[in-house]
Amino acid sequence: MTDNKFKNSIVPPLQENNEDGSLMSAIPHSRELGMRLVSRADDEAVLMIPYDPRLIGNPETGIMHGGAITALLDTCCGTAVMMSRKKPSSTATLDLRINYMKPATPEKSVYAHAHCYRATRSVGFVRAIAYHEDRDDPIATASAAFILNFKGDSA
């Protein structure tokens, strides 16, 4: 993989470093989906959901439901916001838009890579891609805004 390959990608490449995923076990619904934290860096996160027959959306094809990918992208974008250099103490999704390019392939894990490309005092802006192996062949892309909370903020 060359840098050139990612020149036009909406998020920069990130090396996988196989985190233990304990961050996800603190979020009950993410844990229930089998979500794992693959890697994280400043402003970025990579998460994945292993293929699971419970998440099938079409019993005839065995394809994972788009809703599971929505949850993956939301969590991944939120994690990238928490990794932003502004270091918020917590965050909440304001809006999340997902474009679906193709169905997920049955039996394959789905990855998501999110990049918080801008954070102001109150809002983090994020882009993300969901994919199997190749980020240039996305299942879905997402664009989201998150509200940032800091310790000592009034509610």
Partner: peptide, 12 residues
């Protein structure tokens, strides 16, 4: 509630 779960609820 998880935003992914409620978002998926709407999509379903």
């Amino acid at each position: 509630l998880h935003g992914g779960a409620t978002g998926a609820f709407l999509e379903i």
